[in-house]
Every structure is written in structure tokens, then in C-alpha cells.
Design a protein around this nucleic acid. Structure first.
Lengths: 198, 198, 198, 198
DNA sequence: AATGAATGAGAATTCATTCAT
DNA sequence: CATGAATGAATTCTCATTCAT
């Protein structure tokens, strides 16, 4: 019984993943995201989609959550475990660079059908809220410069994530990008350290 | 003839303004932005909309341009006229604070129906491109710290505009906001100066 | 202005009548009553139906009301105006025979998509409720035999309307029907008088 | 082999009965009667339904027949065995009162999903056809008044069954109902006798 | 020019039926 | 035999666009 359920679960996720992939592809290619097209490109029947998701809204929410999960998890770990503020800040920058393809994908996703209103809410929940709290702690602990923690957080966000997205979409040749990335990361860390440390 | 044309132009703009207002209201109220509804709330016939705009896309673009114009203009003046980099940077921050209601409106607008993809493109055209060029000049002129100008620009954008939007939506009482704003602006300027100046 | 509104109203009703006719035809021919088919046979576009009716349910309700109106009106007049009970009872039988084509059409309509539950409710509202009240008055006035008024009313309903529908669907040749009808009506009146009068 | 077949038959009927029960429950609760739901509430797999019934239509017909069988049988016995017409008429009334819960169930069933067209056909097959034939015999035998036998039958049907259903749904308190029923039955018999006997 | 009724392509959703396991 | 995931035809509804008045 448990084995059957396990297997079913496994296939279930396989199909759902395929659907997520299809939706992201459609979004990337600027094709309209219709149930017909999702079904066609996922090689399932339209009706099958409704065996996996109650309706289109539920499907799209699943896609959204799936894309966001890794980002949310990474930040949670970094910001909600104790330790040296500076080390954790650097860990945050590291993590952003590690998942920068996900971040890109995420933005390419959110860039389309979802509205900016939602994006701002999510940006807040996923990144800003923990980042602001983290800054507050750093300021109280005396490690960070004493300004409004929201401003500090926004500055970090802009410097790290903003830069990354900007550079992602500069569309350099892939070879060059890799070597650039190292330099860019160093620049960013240098800049952040310079601002934040007393 | 010229007079007639003038008058026509004048009425034309009056109607178009009414349409823009209607669209923004619809967006703000989270109502669906259909041609039917635009016509109804603008007290024009649906067919009339097509005398003013080729199709819905053209109408929406007009709305968009109308909202963005003041922001674009402000930035153009600041970044494309010569002068002391530091003074101009402060002017930019001033300008953002001056039009922060427009920025808010703009974001309330873009936050809804328009997609982030567009927002990023526009952010780039309207703010980032001139800001990056401005940073490059500052670096070359020796006034600014020598890092990737894109990163520098992102940092400024995040610190100034990101903070402003964040704080806007913190929803403090209006009275308190005004006095806060002064303090916040000072924090921001202090921070930006500290980072950017050699 | 009033004239325009009048004309619009007139065309409006013309179209709606056409739609009602189409629906009844579809029902009679045992064809599925889909919006596509209603539109096709009414020679309007599918979308046009939605200019006249909010959705399919509203359309079907309109059809229903249209068919029922004459029956409801006839009964109202007869049962809600004072006068000799026996004369009014005969008037009711007359009216049923007069509109028996409508009654037939109504039943041919209701026989299909609508459920019997609804039919019973409507039968009650339109015919039974006034008929029961009428019987109560007749009993109290001493004109009618003293039994449960509901039973009396059911008996009348069965004898008059039941018979009519039964005979309608016996499917005799039309010529013969007419002469029959006279005889049948006489039989019915005779029977009802015999039972009901003290 | 015969034993196996017997057992199979037995299980078969058990399952079918469960399905009938489920369908009636769905109908009573005004839930949509889909194969999915029938399967779920009967604790059988959807595919299994198709081992018992060729398709949905066959399934629904089986349900229908199952519900109708007792009513049909009762009438058959009464109307198709010889004997005194008046005694048999009273036996019919008795039988209707005995199975009035079944009649109710039947109507609660037919009242919902099934269409009136079907109801009328069945009413005809199960009750009216034998009743009309019975009336003809009564008239020819000189026991009953000489009018159109169809009218006579409709009158009896209306008086007996119509009244019963009407009263069923009057929704009195259960205690009172029982005593009422006796009085009502007497009223009905009195009325029917009065009409029908010469 | 202004009007708004008509249009119909396109989207979401339902559900009876099939079939591989 | 039992299972239930997959199927896709059929259906309802939306909305940008056209065009006769």
C-alpha cells in the first residue's frame, strides 16, 4: 500500500514537474499560456491537467511555488541561523550567486503573467523581511553602520540582486560571463563590506 | 483651418486624458481592464475608442507613456546635463523624492496589469541606462570609486528608489511620514556618499 | 430619446422572441439545447446571446417565464376575482381548453431539460395554490362538497388538466380531434359538476 | 460451476444495489450524478462500473427500473386479476397508500434529474394504461358512470395520487400526519365512489 | 465622428469512456 | 476482474474588433 502510494506520488511529481517545465518554456518563449498549449507541449491531454490541478489558477500557483522554493529555502537557512553577521552576509551573497540561474528563471517567469504587485509582496516575504531583520540585528550588535535597517537592506538587495539581474540580461557571450562573474562578485562583496561595516 | 485643427486637438487630448484616468482607476480597483469597461467609465462609446486608438495595445501604450513621461523627463535633465557628479547625484536623489508620489502612482500602475518584463525594460530605459552612463563618467573622472558601473548604479537605484518604495508602503500615518522623510533622505544621502566617493 | 429607447426595446423583444422560439423548437425536436445551436438556429452569433442574457441560466429562465406567462395570467384573473363559484370553475375549464396549445407547448418544453421538481413547484404556484384557495371558499360558501380542499383541487386538476394532456398526446388525426374536444369538454364539465356540487 | 455462477450473481446484485443506493442519495442531495461520484460513493473504481453496466444510460435505466418495480407489480396484480370493480378500485387506493413511501421516493427520484417526458411515459405505462383499461371494463360492465374512460382514469389518478403527493409535501409534523392519513383516505374513497358509481 | 449591437476566435472546464497495469 | 489515470469531444463564456446607422 505504502509502496503503491509512493510510486504514484513519484509519477505524480514527474508529471507536475513536466507541466512546470512546459509553463516556464511557454513563458520564456512569450507564447500564450493556455491550458491547450500546456497540455500539448507536456504531451498530456487537456483533461489530464485537471486530474493534477483543480483549475488553471491552482496550476499556476503550483508553478510559482515550485520556482520560488529554492530561493526561499536558501534565505531561510542563512538568515534564521545564528552566527557572525559578516560571514552570514557573505553567505547570502554566495547563495544568490549559486542560484542565480534559478533567480533568473524566476524572474523570467514572474516577468510575464504575474503582476508586479505580487512580485513586490513576494520579494518582501522571501528576501526583504528576513534581510531587514538581519540588518537590525547587525546594527544592534554593533557590527553594522547605524542607519534605518530598511534602507540598509534595500541597499544590499539592490547591490547584490539588482546587479545580478542586470548583468544576467546584458547578454554577453557565455564564455566571457564566467570569468566576469568572479570579478563582479568581488566588486559586490567589496562594495557591501565598505558600506555596511562601521 | 488651423483653429479647427487646434480645437480638435484640444478635445482629442481631453478625451484621451479621460481614458487614461479611467484605465488607471480600473487598474487601481483591480477591475478587469476591458474595452467595454474603459468605454463605459469614460462615458464614450466603445467604437469611439477606436477613433482615438488603433487598438487596445496602442491605447495601453498611450496610458503607459503618459504616466512615465514626468519621470523620464526629470532623469533626462539631471543625467544629460554636464556638471559636478556629486551635485548631480544629489539632484537625482532630490528629484526622486520630489516626484515620489508619481513614482508611487507609476508603481501602483505598473504593479497591476503590466508585466515585470516590461517594468524591467522601462526601468532600464528610464533610470538605469542614464544612471550607468553617469556612474561611468564619475568613475572615469575620478570622483567615484572604481567598480563595475552597473553595480554602482544598481546600488544607487536600490538604496534610493528601493528604499523609497519600501517606505511608501510601510503605511505609517501621514503626519509622521513627512518628518521621517527628511531623516530618511539624509540617511540615504549619507550612505550613498559614503560608498560612492573615493 | 424615449423613441430611441422604445425602438431598441422593440428590437430587443423581437430578438428575444426569436431565441425563445428557437429554444422551444430545439426542445421539441429533441436536439441538445446548447448555446452554439441556439445561436445558429436564431441566426445570431454566439456572443450576441450574451448581449441579451447574462448566461445560459438567465436565457432558459426567460424562455420559461415567457411560456408560463399566459397560463399564470389566465388563472389569476379567474381565481382572484369574486363571483359565482360554479361559473368561475367553468371559466377555469374554458380557459384551460382555450390555452391548451400553450399548455401542451409548455409541457413539451418542461418535459425536457427542466426537472420534475421544478414542474411541481410551478404547478403549485401557478395552478394549485389558487385552485385550493378557490375550493376552500366554495366549501365555506356552501357551494361545494365538504372534503379536504386540497383533495378537491387535486381532483379538479387531474380531471381537467390531466385529461387534456393525456388526450393531447393520444395523437389522433387533427380533424377528428376538434369534434372530440367538444365532447370531452362536456364530459369533463359534467363530471366535475357532479362531484363538486353538493 | 453453477455454484460459482450463483455466488457471482449474488455479489453482482450486491454491488448493483449499492450503486442504486448511491445514485438515489446523490439525486436526493442535489449533487451532480457523474460516474466519478457514483464510483467514489459506492467505493468502487470508475472502471468497475463499466463491468456492471454497458454505459451510463444502462446504469441509470437499471436504477430507474429498480425503483419502479414494486409500484408496477402492485398495480399489475390489482388491475389484471378479475373481480368486483369497486373492490379492486378500493384495493388500488389501499395499495397506493401502502406504498406511499415508495411513491414518494419514486417521485423524489424522478423529480430530480429525470425529465418530465420520461415521467409521463412511465406514469402512462405503469399506472394510466392499466387504469384506463380497468375503467373501460367498469363502464362496459355497467358498474361505472359512462364517460370517456381516459377522463375517468385521470380523475381517479388526480384524486388519489395527486392528493397523496400534495399532502406528502405539505410537511406536517409526523405525529399528526398518521391520524390525518386515515381521514384523508376516507375523503378520497368517498369522493371517488361518488364520482364513479352510477 | 459617434454609436453600440453584432461578431467569432479563443479560453477554461466537465465528464463519459477507454485501457494498460 | 478491479483499478484509476488518461483522454478529448463537447460546452459555456469572454472580449477585442468591426460596421451599419
Amino acid at each position: 500500500m505504502a509502496a503503491v502510494s509512493k510510486k504514484k506520488q513519484w509519477v505524480d511529481n514527474l508529471v507536475k514537474d513536466e507541466i512546470v517545465k512546459t509553463v516556464l518554456t511557454l513563458i520564456k518563449n512569450e507564447q500564450p499560456v493556455t491550458m491547450d498549449e500546456i497540455a500539448r507541449q507536456s504531451s498530456v491531454a487537456k483533461g489530464t491537467l485537471y486530474n493534477y490541478f483543480k483549475n488553471k489558477k491552482a496550476l499556476m500557483q503550483y508553478v510559482h511555488q515550485t520556482v520560488l522554493a529554492p530561493i526561499r529555502d536558501a534565505n531561510k537557512t542563512i538568515f534564521e541561523t545564528p552566527g557572525d553577521p559578516i560571514a552570514r552576509l557573505h553567505a547570502f551573497i554566495d547563495s544568490v550567486f549559486c542560484i542565480h540561474e534559478d533567480v533568473s528563471l524566476y524572474f523570467q517567469f514572474v516577468q510575464k503573467k504575474r503582476t508586479v504587485a505580487n512580485q513586490i509582496d513576494e520579494r518582501f516575504d522571501i528576501v526583504m523581511r528576513p534581510l531587514i531583520r538581519f540588518c537590525s540585528q547587525g546594527i544592534q550588535g554593533g557590527s553594522f553602520i547605524d542607519v534605518d535597517p530598511t534602507i540598509l537592506a534595500e541597499m544590499i538587495y539592490g547591490t547584490v540582486i539588482g546587479s545580478l539581474i542586470s548583468i544576467q540580461s546584458r547578454g554577453d557571450e557565455t564564455d566571457k560571463k564566467k570569468t566576469d562573474m568572479k570579478k563582479i562578485k568581488e566588486d559586490i562583496i567589496c562594495l557591501v563590506d565598505r558600506i555596511i561595516l562601521k
